[in-house]
Amino acid sequence: MRARAGWKLAAGVLAGMYAAVLGAGYLAPYDATEQHREAPLRAPAAMQFERGRLVVADAISGRKVAVHWFSGGHLFGAEAPALYFPLGSDEFGRDQFSRILYGGRISLMAALLGAMVSLGLGLAAGLMSALGPVWLDAVLMRLGEVCLALPWLYLLLGVRAFLPLDLSPEAVFVVFVVLAGMLGWARPARLFRGLGLSLKQAGYVEASRGFGASRWYVARRHMLSELRGVVGTQGALLVPQFLLAEVTLSLFGLGINEPGVSWGTMLDVVRQPAMLAMNPWLAMPVLVLVPVFLCFQVCADAMAR
């Protein structure tokens, strides 16, 4: 009972996060690329309650100004020319909070879509291997072995090495989803193949085959419904892995790059120790990863049961 409630909570939090990053245009007080050179590297600042209303310190003058709610197409913000950065600003005076929301849009969506591509390919390949002719099984599994011949990150980087470096952020997004999806199919495919093979022995599948059901029918009707839980679990395990892959690639300048924003591009501060030491809040996106990972883990555990 407790596990069930935890699962629902985790799924709810994830749904909320995805909704938040998709609604970044409204929730974020500023645009992701909007620079305020007059207020760089400001520390995070909480709202304060004063004389019956919420006030914030202006990032330029330090004067207390009232928070404006639901105005100018944004949920909240300080009235111009005052600036308010809830989670601080970076060296160009860009609002970290807004960047985390807009960056999450790229990072979370890329991870989700990449995992879906991977899972779809893995499921198709796994079931074709299990149900199809022997030669197809051999071809698919050898192909899978090539994909598994390298540590996953090296594989991704190795293939990325031969794509142009100066791609636009949109192009990188598409390339990442396709590439990660195409390189990550092998492990789930092996799992699905094994499960498919054991399901093939099940009495009801054999009976169905005996009644003249086609392979396609068996795959769709019997195996997919039986494998639903495993597919869900695999998905919940793959998304964090892909999220980390996007972050890593972008962190090293091989993924999304300026002016595009993702959690990975924001985290390149981790590679500049002096900058990080002076302004630790710049590494904030890494804290956002923790609840994301936690929620996916809880969901995966719940579905595995």
Binding site: V247, L251, V286, Q297
Partner: peptide, 11 residues
């Protein structure tokens, strides 16, 4: 430990 990304520890 499973949900703590290495990057957090690294940072």
């Amino acid at each position: 430990l499973l949900v703590l990304p290495e990057l957090l520890l690294a940072s």
